[in-house]
């Protein structure tokens, strides 16, 4: 095994250009599990821990920003999601870029990105591209990265609603992979966004529910129930060892409705 430990982005991109099949290592919280159990033995590793630029958090979010950092804000729902990622030890190491690279439907940070229609800035030695979250996440554990590319940052839109809430359903009260999770946002003009995780092959948006609720300026109880029903209808969960298709469907709707209630209560 060879390892490159670049300290700036340019060197990282050169290293990746020279060895496009290299495995990128950031927080290690996913890759090291594969390595520890003998499921992965990368020949070449490019370790990004020392690249300061990737840890920047200003308008955009550097891919190397840790969950521990995101737990502090500034984005309310992302901070809520960050608090549920693994354990404090995992949050100290794991990064938002890792969530994107692993592209698990259970990635806790992804519903926030989906709700905002965030873009992923991908860089290589020859240039950069911006991919919307759903262009980037192409399937379960699949993403649009090409050899030689790395995730530079997440670019958020200029308009970010203050009313944003995240919730995650798991069987344990901490350190748990979600059975289902959701992020709901409500803009001042009533536009509503709903993103759901662990309820389909990738993080998904409940667009019919969004459309229905966006038209409601002060939703009645019946409208809230309808919203819940549509979310449950729209998600595409499966049954596995963590939960069942029907429970996930039910819980997705309930959580989305509750998060919307919180958004509305926030005024």
């Amino acid at each position: 095994m060879e390892i490159e430990r670049p300290t700036d982005i340019a060197a990282a991109l050169v290293a990746l250009a020279e060895t496009p099949d290299a495995t990128v290592l950031a927080g290690g919280t996913d890759l090291m599990v594969e390595i520890n159990f003998g499921h992965a033995r990368p020949d070449r590793i490019v370790a990004l821990r020392r690249v300061g630029e990737l840890k920047e958090l200003n308008g955009s979010i550097g891919s190397g920003v840790s969950w521990a950092r995101l737990e502090q804000g500034p984005h309310r729902a992302l901070a809520q999601a960050a608090r549920t990622v693994g354990s404090p030890q995992i949050r100290a190491a794991g990064t938002i870029g890792g969530n994107l690279a692993t592209a698990s439907p259970a990635g806790d940070g992804l519903p926030f990105l989906a709700a905002l229609d965030a873009e992923v800035e991908v860089r290589s030695a020859t240039g950069s591209r911006l991919l919307r979250w759903d262009e980037f996440l192409t399937g379960p554990k699949q993403n649009a990265l090409e050899p030689g590319e790395l995730i530079h940052s997440v670019v958020l839109p200029e308009e970010i609603p203050v009313r944003q809430e995240f919730g995650k359903v798991g069987v344990r009260n901490a350190m748990v992979i979600s059975a289902v999770m959701a992020c709901v946002m409500r803009y001042d003009d009533g536009r509503t966004r709903v993103a759901v995780g662990s309820a389909g092959p990738t993080t998904l948006r409940a667009r019919r529910a969004e459309e229905m609720m966006s038209a409601e300026s002060s939703p009645s109880e019946a409208a809230m129930s309808e919203f819940q029903r549509i979310v449950s209808e729209e998600v595409k969960p499966i049954t596995d060892h963590r939960s069942t298709e029907s429970y996930r469907r039910h819980a997705a709707g309930v959580v989305a409705r509750r998060l919307l209630e919180r958004c509305l209560e926030a005024g």
Partner: peptide, 16 residues
């Protein structure tokens, strides 16, 4: 200065 799981740190990446 961060508490981490040492099982998830690649030893070769602990340099420095």
């Amino acid at each position: 200065r961060q508490a981490v799981c040492s099982c998830l740190v690649l030893a070769a990446d602990a340099d420095g």
